[in-house]
Nucleic acid binder design. Structure first.
Length: 345
RNA sequence: GGGGGAAUACCAGAGUGGCCAAAUGGGGCAGACUGUAAAUCUGCUGACGUACGUCUUCGGUGGUUCGAAUCCAUCUUCCCCCA
């Protein structure tokens, strides 16, 4: 949602944590069509959380990411973050408190804390100062959370966000700090923001070594199919990412055989399905040639089909991951799948 | 039959004597996109070479000029107007 609302609405597809296996997941902004009605999102001593009305849980971001992505046009302070709307220039102030209020109003099942997300190359001194601010904000978020009630008759939970940039000791410190709130789940933020992938993986390992095993770990904003498999391998349970939709709109299709740029002329006469492995999101499988025609013609349908296809692909990917974790052959499957996923077709 | 206009790279279309291998768009090719200010943005697109560069291009032919996509003659093709 645009600046001013203080939150981004997402759908989250979550495992039933009663499964033995880790890795459930995902993702898909604004798409809730993959979720089962009344599915239990998580269990905690003494109670079961139920989703809001419809097909699945709603997760909202706090607006913290805007602190990162709008770095050029915002002002950070102890109080919060000021923005000028890109739409009408009006001024807006996000604070830990009003961001919680907004998410209460939206009715999110999972609300996110308000944090600062520094860039991947942030110097240590900045990272440490930022982390301290994020932690202070986090306490304010939970204060507000504790002093307010769900508005729409279903429970609303709040996830803290681990920060610390690319510094292992800061990450570890943060992962310990956030546990004082005994949350239903924990988010890992501030990754995939410019740092190399190996650094991201290392940070995930550091953090997950500290976070509790019996609560979902949510890696925010990640990522490519391979990123997701690597993160699952390191104990992450939940993801969200714009990649399947944004890249889909821009003509990139993820398939079990590799990545396709559907605008390429090579697909012009290719009447085979987008993915031979059958990740079609409807019974009818669109052909590459048809989708290319729509994309080249500038038809909105191309963006729609590509987005839905990519989301369906991501959903299938994590479902397979879960199955292979249960079957006990995740590592072998991951290696084989990843090799294909990075190919360009 | 008479009069006028036009032919430019894959397409469309600027350019009217040197700063033109030739604007701009499209098409093509490649790349980017990771808690969505994004149906977006970037690069390349005559040949050879990493590159400075060299060579061949602006309908055909022949001229003028130090120098021509640009001027002249002629041919070809297309378009328009009048009969």
């Amino acid at each position: 949602m645009p600046v001013g609302t203080g939150a981004t609405v997402k759908g989250v597809f979550h495992r039933d944590v009663r499964d033995e296996a880790r890795a459930s997941i995902i993702l898909a902004n604004t798409y809730h069509l993959y979720m089962r009605p009344g599915m239990e999102v998580m269990e905690k001593a003494g109670g079961v959380h139920r989703f809001s009305s419809w097909e699945g849980p709603m997760l909202t971001d706090s607006g913290g990411f805007q602190v990162f992505s709008l770095a050029g046009v915002r002002k950070l302070s102890e109080e919060g973050c000021r923005f000028a709307s890109h739409i009408d220039g009006s001024k807006h102030l996000f604070t830990p408190e009003n961001v919680i209020d907004t998410q209460r109003t939206i009715g999110a099942d999972i609300m996110m804390a308000f944090d600062e997300c520094p860039p991947g190359d942030a110097p240590r001194e900045y990272a440490a100062r930022s982390l301290a601010l994020t932690h202070r904000w986090l306490e304010r978020c939970f204060d507000r959370y504790a002093s307010t009630s769900p508005r729409w008759g279903h429970s609303q939970t709040l996830f803290p966000i681990v920060q610390g940039c690319a510094y292992a000791d800061l990450r570890e410190q943060s992962a310990r700090f956030v546990q004082r709130f005994d949350a239903d789940g924990y988010a890992i933020g501030g990754l995939a923001v410019g740092e190399p992938a190996p650094v991201m993986y290392e940070m995930i390992e550091v953090v997950n070594a500290v976070l509790p095993q019996d609560r979902p770990r949510y890696l925010m904003g990640v990522g490519t199919p391979v990123n997701i498999l690597e993160a699952i391998d390191r104990g992450v349970d939940m993801f969200d990412c714009v990649m399947p939709t944004r890249n889909g709109r821009n003509g990139m299709l993820f398939t079990s055989e590799g990545v396709i740029n559907i605008r390429n002329e090579k697909w012009r006469d290719d009447f085979s399905p987008i993915d031979p492995d059958g990740t079609a999101f409807v019974d009818h499988a669109y052909t590459k040639a048809y989708l290319r025609h729509l994309a080249v013609s500038g038809e909105m349908m191309a963006a729609q089909i590509a987005s839905l296809h990519n989301i369906a692909f991501y959903m299938k990917l994590v479902r397979q991951a879960r199955e292979h974790i249960v079957a006990g052959d995740f590592a072998a499957w991951k290696a084989e799948a990843a090799a294909k996923l990075i190919r360009r077709l």
